[in-house]
Write a protein that binds this DNA or RNA. Sequence first.
DNA 1: GGTCCCATGTAACAAGTTACATGATTCC
DNA 2: GGAATCATGTAACTTGTTACATGGGACC
Lengths: 186, 186
Amino acid sequence: MSLRYGILGLLSYGDMTGYDISKAFKESIGYFWNAQQSQIYRELAALEKEGLVEYDLVIQNDKPNKKLYRLDDLGRDRLVEWLGDENMDDYFVIRNPLLLRLFFSSKVPVSRTISLLTNYKERCESAARQLAADTSDLSAYETQVGNDEAMYWKMTIAYGLGNYQFGARWAQDCIDILQEKEEENG
Amino acid sequence: MSLRYGILGLLSYGDMTGYDISKAFKESIGYFWNAQQSQIYRELAALEKEGLVEYDLVIQNDKPNKKLYRLDDLGRDRLVEWLGDENMDDYFVIRNPLLLRLFFSSKVPVSRTISLLTNYKERCESAARQLAADTSDLSAYETQVGNDEAMYWKMTIAYGLGNYQFGARWAQDCIDILQEKEEENG
DNA sequence: GGTCCCATGTAACAAGTTACATGATTCC
DNA sequence: GGAATCATGTAACTTGTTACATGGGACC
C-alpha cells in the first residue's frame, strides 16, 4: 500500500514520468524505499484508472515519447488522508534476513560468520558515507522546495545515517565476541 | 526466499507442526521475522514436494490430528548452503513506511507529525521492554540448546533492543525540532 | 562497436495479506 | 455463553521480483 503513496508524494512536488519516479526511488529516497520499474508502471496505470492521477502524452523527436503524470485533486486528498492515518502497525512489521541468518549460524563455522559480519559492517559504513555524500549539499534542495520539506528530509537522513552507524557498531560488537570465541576454541 | 530458510532453520532444532512454526514466528523470532499462517502452510507443502522436509501424520483424540514435520538431508544441506551464501544484497533492500511518510509530512500540520512521532517513540520503548522481558531468562534456553545457539540468539536480541532504542532516541530528536518549530510559528 | 541514457511496457512468477472454513476442548 | 488453544487448510488478492522487448541518440 505504501508504494502508491510514495508515488503520489513524489508527484506532489511536480509532474513526472514513470521513468523519473523510478529514478527518484533509486537515487533520492532509495535509503528508505525501493521499487522496481515494472512495479511503478503498474501502479501508475492503476492510479490513473482510479482517477488519482492524470497524464499528458508528450511527443519528443530525439527521445522516446513520454507520459507526464500529475496529481489529481482526488490523489492529493488521498495522500493527505494517508499522512494523517493513526494506524502504525505497518511500522512494526519486521523482516530482517540478516538476523534470520545469524540466528541459525551455529550450524556454520565461526570464521564464516565473522566474515559475514565484517562484510556487513563495511557495507553499512560505505552506505553511510554514500548517503552523507549524496546529501551533503542540502542548500540547493532547501531553496528549491522550501524549509519545511528540507526539515523533514533531514530527519529521514538522520535516521538513515544513524541506522547504518548502529548496524556497523553492532556488527563490530558481534565480531569481537566471535573472535574471542575463536581464540578459546582455536 | 528467506521464509523457506526460516522454516528449515526452525526444523533444525526439532520436529514441528505448521502450527508450532507459526507460533515460533510470532513469539520467539517475531522481532526479526514475521510470517502469516497461510504462508507457512503453503511453504511447507512446497518444501515437502521438493523433498526438503518430510512429515508423519500424528493421530490425536482430544485434539486435531497433526503433521509433524522434520528436516530431510536435502533440506539440511540447503540450509547450510544458504548460511554460507556470500551475497548480501537482500540485507540492504529497505522499505520503511515511517520514513516515507515523514518525508512528505510538510503537507500536514506539525502537530500531527509530533503526535505520530510521539506514538512511534512509545511503541519503540514498549517493544524494547517487551523484548527484554521475553528474553530476560536466557538460562533456560541456554541449557536447552547449548552455548553456541544462545550466543547467536543474544546477538539478534542485541540488534533488536538497540534498534528500538535508536528509534526512540531519533524520534525524540525529531520531536524536539518540531516543537521548537511550533513555538516559533505558533 | 559497446555501453549508458531515455522511456515505455508485458509476462510469468514468488511472496505476503486477508478472509473464510471446520471443530473439539479447555478455561473463565 | 464466549474466548482461547490446537490444527489444518483454501481462495482471492496485492505486492514485489526477474526477465524480456523495443529503439534512437550520445559518448568513448
